[in-house]
Simulated scan of single mutants.
Amino acid sequence: MSRVSQAEAQANRASAVVAASRLFRERGVPNVSVVDIMRSVGLTQGGFYKQFASKGALVDEAVRRGFVDMMRYLTDLQEGSDDRSTAWLALLDSYLSTEHRDDPGGGCPAAGFVGDLAKDPAHRDAYAAGVREMAAWIAPGDAGLAALATLVGGILLARATAGSAVSDEVLHAVRDTASRVAD
């Protein structure tokens, strides 16, 4: 059996974190096993324990990874827009879309992890830091937190009512109301 190089080990670890972040948001932390994560990236369960102390340690990394990816997306929106208002409206268009509603694994970590982390306080620090950073991108202070809470609540309601007219109505109503923040 050949040994894995340090570079390969780091790449495997990064792949596992990305996969875990997606799977946890998609199915929920309790519903994803170490075997599920490692199988999704073509590695063995034994390889997991060479990289991570526990599934809990991976949860923290997966939460942080989700927010790093989200902040990269927000930065790209900002850089691709003429002004802050245009970036905010672009975020609303993507965030409050049926595509985002139907893809929790690839979507917002604030929405994707909220249910599991509300039940498991062990991982709240990583989540709280991500929420604070994301809210600060939206707007300073309470306004950013309130706007983020509105977006997360809206996408969660839309997901919970997917397949009914209410889902699309929620997406439209939240987008219409939140777009006024840019005015």
Rank of each mutant, 00 (worst) to 15 (best):
residue 44 T to G: 13
residue 115 G to D: 11
residue 127 Y to W: 07
residue 135 A to Q: 08
residue 134 M to F: 03
residue 132 R to K: 11
residue 12 N to D: 15
residue 149 A to K: 05
residue 164 S to G: 10
residue 127 Y to G: 05
residue 114 V to M: 13
residue 127 Y to V: 06
residue 82 D to G: 15
residue 122 A to I: 01
residue 98 T to A: 14
residue 55 K to C: 09
residue 105 G to N: 08
residue 5 S to M: 01
residue 145 L to G: 08
residue 16 A to Y: 01
residue 172 H to A: 15
residue 29 V to Q: 03
residue 39 R to G: 03
residue 137 W to N: 02
residue 17 V to W: 06
residue 168 D to R: 10
residue 81 S to T: 06
residue 149 A to Y: 01
residue 5 S to Q: 04
residue 21 S to C: 03
residue 120 D to Y: 06
residue 46 G to D: 10
residue 160 A to K: 13
residue 67 F to P: 01
residue 1 M to E: 11
residue 68 V to N: 10
residue 3 R to G: 13
residue 78 Q to E: 13
residue 36 D to A: 11
residue 141 G to R: 02
residue 67 F to Q: 07
residue 138 I to K: 01
residue 123 H to Q: 10
residue 23 L to H: 00
residue 91 L to D: 08
residue 174 V to E: 03
residue 9 A to G: 09
residue 134 M to W: 01
residue 58 L to I: 10
residue 27 R to D: 02
residue 66 G to F: 03
residue 168 D to Q: 13
residue 91 L to H: 13
residue 58 L to M: 12
residue 166 V to E: 11
residue 66 G to M: 02
residue 161 T to M: 08
residue 147 A to Q: 03
residue 117 L to M: 07
residue 60 D to Q: 08
residue 80 G to V: 06
residue 67 F to Y: 11
residue 85 S to C: 12
residue 101 R to Y: 08
residue 85 S to T: 13
residue 97 S to M: 05
residue 74 L to A: 05
residue 169 E to M: 13
residue 11 A to L: 11
residue 157 L to D: 11
residue 24 F to H: 13
residue 148 L to T: 02
residue 167 S to H: 02
residue 131 V to L: 05
residue 33 S to L: 04
residue 132 R to V: 04
residue 49 Y to V: 02
residue 134 M to L: 09
residue 131 V to Q: 05
residue 34 V to N: 00
residue 64 R to A: 15
